[in-house]
Design a protein around this nucleic acid. Structure first.
Lengths: 159, 159
DNA sequence: TATTGTTATACTCTATAACTATA
DNA sequence: TATAGTTATAGAGTATAACAATA
């Protein structure tokens, strides 16, 4: 292996984040916030799910998801309603403004992603997507928040 | 596209970071620090390069690289010598301890990476690696530190 | 007891700006 | 002027622990 998979993965992700940031320039959204909008849209996602479910689906821990959503609520893109069936949970959906922003930005975001993969043929692009999806599906226990932290050093003690 | 490339890339990277962290458990190293050790090993890398060159090669900004290397120097794995030909620069190499640690951990790290890709055939693994490398090579301007930050919101002003 | 979401806290990675010492 | 590396500071992502409200 000339380059470690992790080194390639880091740069590949770095490139896509940069392309996403370009597409989101001027929207004051991080790429994860935009991904959350897509997940909550009634056209492209599943409105009405709760925070923990969304966090699991996006492989983000629930504290980060809570903060991410609070910011989206503050700027008026997401609505959080207490679930009447389980008053601990909050059901999520986009506001009309959030839906409009998602609809406006989504094509730009999509084409910025595609531009990164333009060096590949359509068949190769599909193959790359498929291979990555298979690796992800095969490693469910590693694809979770928290699995990538630096472990304690030898002899170090937990606080 | 069922899933956006960026979402797949994030999870794929997350999985490899988790696997890397498992392999590095007990070593008090982050995956980037271990990658730096590999780059500086006389067996697997190029000893004697300077910090900025290493930062560019690993696609890390030079401030982060400086801090990463300082920690490696403090724990006695990396040696920084002022370049006699250009006394601004510091030439990097592993200490004997650093070289021994790299030699000991590298096989574990390698096999932890391979385990993640075990669901693919050898041919598919090579293909995935090749496709990612091609995408990276085709997008040099995006694969740089700093390209992925959240841009200023509309109407927001620089401080 | 267990779960949803919060608050408090912290580590890692990343980055910009300003600085120093050299060139 | 320009570059190598540092210091100071900060944004973003990620995480753990402890908590309140609810189940």
């Amino acid at each position: 292996m000339r380059k470690a998979p992790i080194a390639l993965a880091r740069r590949y992700f770095q490139i896509l984040v940069a392309a996403s940031a370009d597409a989101l320039a001027g929207e004051a959204l991080t790429n994860l916030q935009f991904a959350a909008l897509v997940q909550l849209s009634k056209f492209t996602g599943e409105p009405g799910i709760d925070q923990n479910s969304l966090a699991a689906r996006m492989s983000v821990d629930r504290v980060s998801m809570g903060k991410l959503l609070e910011e989206l609520e503050v700027i008026g893109l997401v609505d959080r309603q207490v679930d009447r069936a389980d008053r601990r949970a909050r059901l999520l959906r986009l506001t009309p403004r959030g839906e409009r922003l998602r609809a406006r930005v989504h094509p730009l975001h999509f084409s910025s992603q595609l531009k990164v993969l333009r060096c590949l043929s359509a068949k190769e692009r599909a193959l790359l997507i498929d291979l990555m999806a298979r690796v992800i599906a095969a490693n469910p226990t590693l694809a979770r928040p928290g699995a990538g932290r630096r472990k304690r050093a030898k002899g170090a003690k937990p606080s």
